[in-house]
Amino acid sequence: MALFDVAADSYVRFMGRFSTPLSVPFADIGLAGVDSSARVLDVGCGPGILTSELVKRQGEANVSAVDPVEAFVQAAAASYPAADVRVAAAEALPYPDDTFGATLAQLVVHFMSDPVAGVGEMVRVTAPGGRVSACVWDNAGGTGASSSFWRVVQRYDPEAEGEKARPGSWGGDLTRMFTDAGLQDVEETLLTVRRDFATFEEWWEPFTLGVGPAGAYVRSLNQIEQTGLMGALREEHGGGPITIQASAWTATGLV
């Protein structure tokens, strides 16, 4: 998880811009039909963006959350002291079988070292009849939160890897993983959120914080290259206001 070896505040300033609004419709899907008193798990919780939405709906004591980054776990635990927040990888969840009524992973599957194992662990810790859900930005389709950034990058640097090849980033891939993991009644949909930025600088500045693949790419550039990229992006988007619509493939299934 070196891509997220950053301060919790930096993560929220970059990822939270889109994951916070996404957490509402994602929780609607992930908790559909789940009893309001059921225990639920947030896999790859970061500093607690989805955790916050789950706490509102299930109550703090019914929410568990895990993340491999200790700084993120500390931040989430400080915000929700009654929740069970632990340092753990998705591929080795520290809970017994059949513990939760719902297990959710928001914008995490594509960063798991072994996505199939991670989804399998989510299934294992979810009780029969419980719901497992995950979402990943539509990077392959070009409508992810950072897709407009990568389009400009690859115009000038065709060797830049981008995020299109990450697991779950295209329609049907999450469904394949869920079906292979033995989930039933798997449904996949595309959730879209919108964020308005008053100025180009408001949109651009979080890219300089080193968060995720986009932030790591910006950090890899020297000052001249970074200034050139910023200029190309400003030419693409204008000085502001800027509106970004971001879509995420979302799959849910029953154990």
Rank of each mutant, 00 (worst) to 15 (best):
Y156I: 13
G144I: 08
Q106V: 00
T143V: 13
E159P: 00
M122T: 02
T126F: 03
T126V: 05
V136N: 03
V136F: 07
R131H: 01
T126N: 03
A117M: 11
R124I: 06
D157E: 09
S133V: 08
W137Q: 01
L107M: 15
A127R: 15
V109H: 02
V136P: 04
G120D: 07
G118I: 11
A102H: 04
L107R: 13
P115L: 10
E159R: 10
H110D: 01
A127S: 13
V132E: 05
D114K: 09
D138W: 06
M112W: 10
Q106Y: 03
G142W: 12
P158E: 05
A105N: 06
R155G: 10
F149E: 01
R124N: 03
V109E: 01
N139P: 01
Y156K: 13
G129D: 04
A134I: 07
Y156G: 03
A134E: 03
V108P: 01
G129T: 07
S133L: 09
G129C: 07
R131I: 11
P158C: 08
L104C: 06
V116R: 15
G144R: 05
S146Y: 13
G141I: 06
G141M: 07
D114M: 10
D157H: 12
V153R: 01
Q106N: 08
C135G: 00
D114G: 08
A127L: 11
F111V: 09
E159N: 04
S147Y: 06
S147H: 09
A117S: 13
Q154H: 08
V123N: 13
V109L: 08
V132T: 10
M112C: 15
S146R: 07
S113P: 14
V136T: 11
D157F: 10
A134N: 03
S113N: 11
P158K: 12
M122H: 05
V123Q: 11
V123F: 13
N139L: 07
P158N: 11
H110E: 02
V123S: 09
F111N: 12
R155E: 15
G144V: 08
R155K: 15
D114A: 12
F149K: 02
E159Q: 12
L107C: 14
G130E: 06
S147C: 14
Q154N: 09
M122E: 02
